[in-house]
């Protein structure tokens, strides 16, 4: 059997074991674990973002955006000002989180902000629904130029704090692996059932 056919064989025979598991690569050398973390205060100081960077972020209700005195919106604006394009997928955005993003949509920045929600009725396959359901509490942010990855294995709705978090710095994230898989899942979900909520002018 061809090695690639062997992979397809596995993919085509997905059984009933599709609950959330850790990817093997979360536990590789160089990945920085955070038992608990806040994306704004723990990721922001270590991630490299500059002009030409791109960020793809998955969240659920946007609790980080609407929490009082929480600097996430300010950090997003700093990234946009620096020339980083931000694509934000919110699976179930609260009205408050969209309100918090609204000023960014009319602010002129070097980078471009696109915010997507989900139209579940367009989720054409059980696999897509499975991904969406898994992302209720499993969140990530992928960065390109330079490539980096932030993973939150357990981020409950309504909370700014996440548990079981991992940061893949540039030298770890450059290897083929989890960043490619999650980016591919992100693009697939946005392409098949993404619903544009905000596009910056």
């Amino acid at each position: 059997m061809d090695a690639f056919d062997a992979i397809l064989n596995i993919l085509d025979k997905k059984g009933a074991e599709q609950d959330a598991l850790p990817f093997a690569s979360l536990h590789q050398a160089g990945v920085q674990p955070f038992p608990t973390a806040n994306i704004a205060t723990d990721l922001e100081p270590i991630v490299k973002v500059h002009s030409g960077s791109k960020a793809f972020i998955v969240g659920y209700d946007g609790a980080n955006l609407s929490a009082p005195d929480y600097p996430w919106v300010r950090i997003l604006k700093e990234w946009l000002d620096a020339g980083c394009d931000v694509t934000y997928l919110l699976l179930n955005p609260s009205p408050k989180s969209l309100e918090a993003l609204a000023p960014l949509s009319i602010t002129k920045t070097s980078g471009r902000l696109c915010v997507y929600g989900i139209d579940k009725s367009k989720a054409g396959s059980p696999r897509t629904l499975e991904m969406i359901n898994q992302w209720r509490a499993f969140h990530f942010a992928i960065f390109e130029d330079p490539r980096q990855l932030w993973v939150e294995c357990d981020h409950q709705p309504g909370d700014t704090k996440a548990r079981d978090c991992y940061f893949f710095p540039e030298d770890v994230a450059k290897k083929p692996g989890l960043p490619d898989i999650l980016k591919s899942k992100f693009e697939y979900v946005v392409r098949t059932c993404g619903m544009n909520l905000i596009t910056q002018n």
């Binding site: 992979i7 993919l11 591919s184």
Partner: peptide, 20 residues
């Protein structure tokens, strides 16, 4: 995991999202 991703990227990148 890394080699499986490499294979998928080379042979059928449009199915990479199916890797679990």
């Amino acid at each position: 995991e890394s080699l499986l991703v490499e294979l998928m990227l080379q042979r059928q990148p449009d199915r990479l999202h199916e890797l679990h």
